[in-house]
Design a protein around this nucleic acid. Sequence first.
DNA 1: ATCATAGTCGTCTCTCTGACGATAAGCACA
DNA 2: TGTGCTTATCGTCAGAGAGACGACTATGAT
Lengths: 256, 256
Amino acid sequence: MIVAMSRYDPSAFPPFAVTVDLVVLTVRDHALCALLVRRGEPPFQGYWALPGGFVRPDEGLAEAASRELAEETGLRAHSAPGHEAVGPGAAGAHLEQLATYGHPQRDPRMRVVSVAYLVLAPDLPTPRAGGDASSARWAPVGELLGQSPVDGVPLAFDHGLILADGVERARSKIEYSSLATAFCPTEFTVGELRRVYEAVWGVVLDPRNFHRKVTGTPGFLLPSGGTTTRQGGRPAQLFTAGGASALNPPMLRPES
Amino acid sequence: MIVAMSRYDPSAFPPFAVTVDLVVLTVRDHALCALLVRRGEPPFQGYWALPGGFVRPDEGLAEAASRELAEETGLRAHSAPGHEAVGPGAAGAHLEQLATYGHPQRDPRMRVVSVAYLVLAPDLPTPRAGGDASSARWAPVGELLGQSPVDGVPLAFDHGLILADGVERARSKIEYSSLATAFCPTEFTVGELRRVYEAVWGVVLDPRNFHRKVTGTPGFLLPSGGTTTRQGGRPAQLFTAGGASALNPPMLRPES
DNA sequence: ATCATAGTCGTCTCTCTGACGATAAGCACA
DNA sequence: TGTGCTTATCGTCAGAGAGACGACTATGAT
């Protein structure tokens, strides 16, 4: 009978809970890191998990993701839906929808469908714990996705899978978009941008070819006029993110 | 109070309905077409909409999409999650998750979150109507996404947006993957594959350069041994899809 | 036989990449 | 005040790949 009504009466259906989970990535010390929170409640009490929470009845999905992000990190995200260009020198973090996970048994309590969002942020101070997280930390994704789970324990729920998907999305997306600038502060040097690519891809890039590529791609970088020596060595020109969002031709990941 | 419990007790939450919507694309008569069904019930009664339906309590999201697809078209989809290689000469259609739409007011009846799936299928006979659809048809996406909506009327709900996202996904994905073969029957010629690219991108490609590119990319095409003259002219070699799923370097869309 | 149609192979040029040499301009020390 | 170390930036060269397009091939239609 439920089946018969199912197509016509949504309220006749057993309820689903809808949550958002966040894959928040940043680059710290030459390594791609993800934000994890420790769960203070069952299920998976004491496990590390992705930050996230339930979507409220009157808010949109991206809105919920944005709110959770602010609650956990204080970051103000600006979502970049669809093909819309990301504004240059944007203050907040990049936020985009990643994928949705709805395996019937992914939460032992009830049927929960989780919409995962990917957040790319510049390096931040150690995150503040908030909400139901008794603590929070940046974990290098190399350790998380390699053989050894964090502290010898996998992530809660299916968050290991979600994280892996988020990292893969970030890795492929910086190839053909200017999204790598989302990992940088407003003003950055070519070398700093190169270190972002190196950390995300886990490779070493030739500084000369990289410099030629990014400065030769129209709209990728805008010279801001200043220089800095914060990386040591010869003063480097400072840039802000240009208006271009698509890189054509793409940046090539070496040794596929 | 709801907020206070919200993080810990999922069942304390007002229910969401979860649906799947399908963007089913195929190539017919040199044009990219999407499958639409006419709604027989309110809301949006009489409007064209994407096929879809409610997720059952005990089935996964891809499973629900697959079931709806079979109900509406009789197609057996094989989902290709993650980085998994698509088997050569696959019988069914390609199915992958597209995105999730959850604007609070997207369905006037209640809060509905819809997980959209993208299906790429070879050319099919005119679809059979099924379920709550009083009729079904293939609509060229050019008409749908251009200025003129179908029959002068836009699609139901936010399905116009979902369709646009699906088409964009298909357009960009055939650049760097071998997914265009999902639009072809098991055995196909280089020319037929080229016409797929031309239809999806809405461009004209040079047959000689295209031939060089696809036959020169290892793992893209496997010669099946036979030839055909079904397109007229000189007999063309028949191929099946090779095991490679990623194209490196990618196929370039002309005139970006 | 001739033509129209599509498929397949080659060639040339241009652009972009990868490899790598060379120079520039700061800082840390002796 | 150099000397050395570091990073930034510019140049050069060879090879891969793409776009433009000529030439030839093998069918069916007239």
